[in-house]
Amino acid sequence: MPAVNQPVLDFLLSRRSRPAKTLGLPVPDREALMPILTAAARSPDHGKLEPWRFIVLERGALLRLAALVPEVGARLGRDAADIEKAQGHFAHAHLVVAVIESQKPPQKIPAIEQSYSAGAVCLALLNAALASGWGANWLSGWPSHDREFCATGLGLAENERIAGLIHIGTASSQPPERPRPDINAITTWVSE
């Protein structure tokens, strides 16, 4: 039998994202954030393409992005409640790491696997932040899927998109446990 790393397994079995609205100051400084980013970058990356990168959004940048949301929402025909909620995701945050999927030109590695790798980076970043003692939450939302918002707000190239926005800060409360999947209902065993 392999050796079990019980503390890590216990962490994974009990990990719980913290709602972004409960994350406040302090936030990790650059020195504290580097090991978290380094851990995230160790995600599966078929072909060693690094089809992702990070943009660390500090308070001033988040307020600038919040100011863009109403214009984008109006252009997309969003109602006032949707706009206010999306704007709040940026306006009330203190630190967000945007994981940017940067598709590489056609190679042996299909585009879908590059997308999966970017998603793996999001989860690894979330878990690394939580394991480091910070509160964290993975959000996206409709502004992050709008090409113009991404280009204007973050300077993303045509081959790039936001895979996830990882909010990191100090959690002000412990969230209650939520229902989890019934593993037996979603697992199929195939022997032959």
Rank of each mutant, 00 (worst) to 15 (best):
D29T: 11
S115N: 03
N5D: 15
S172A: 15
L156T: 02
A3Q: 13
I109G: 03
S43D: 07
S43R: 08
L37T: 10
V99Y: 04
P176T: 11
A129V: 06
L156R: 09
L95C: 06
P19Y: 03
R42P: 04
P143S: 10
E58Q: 12
P179K: 11
S43G: 09
L33K: 10
A120K: 07
T152V: 15
G133T: 07
L95T: 02
L13F: 13
A163N: 09
S43F: 08
S43W: 06
N5G: 00
T170M: 04
A81D: 12
I83N: 03
R78A: 12
T170S: 14
L125T: 05
P26D: 03
A66P: 01
Y116G: 11
T38A: 15
S132G: 14
G164Y: 05
F90Y: 09
A32H: 05
L33Y: 02
L65I: 01
V72K: 01
A128H: 02
H167Q: 04
V69Q: 01
L25P: 01
K104A: 15
S102T: 15
I183W: 13
H92Y: 05
A171H: 00
A41R: 09
A129E: 05
A171Q: 04
P70H: 00
V96T: 10
A111T: 13
R161W: 00
S144E: 10
H89L: 13
V97E: 03
G133K: 01
G133I: 04
H145M: 12
A157C: 09
P106I: 09
P26V: 06
E160Q: 14
A131F: 10
P110C: 05
D29I: 09
A32S: 12
R53C: 13
E177R: 11
N184E: 15
L154E: 08
P19C: 08
Q103S: 14
P179A: 13
A91M: 01
Q6C: 00
V190L: 14
R64H: 14
F54T: 04
A39P: 06
G73Q: 01
A98N: 08
R16P: 05
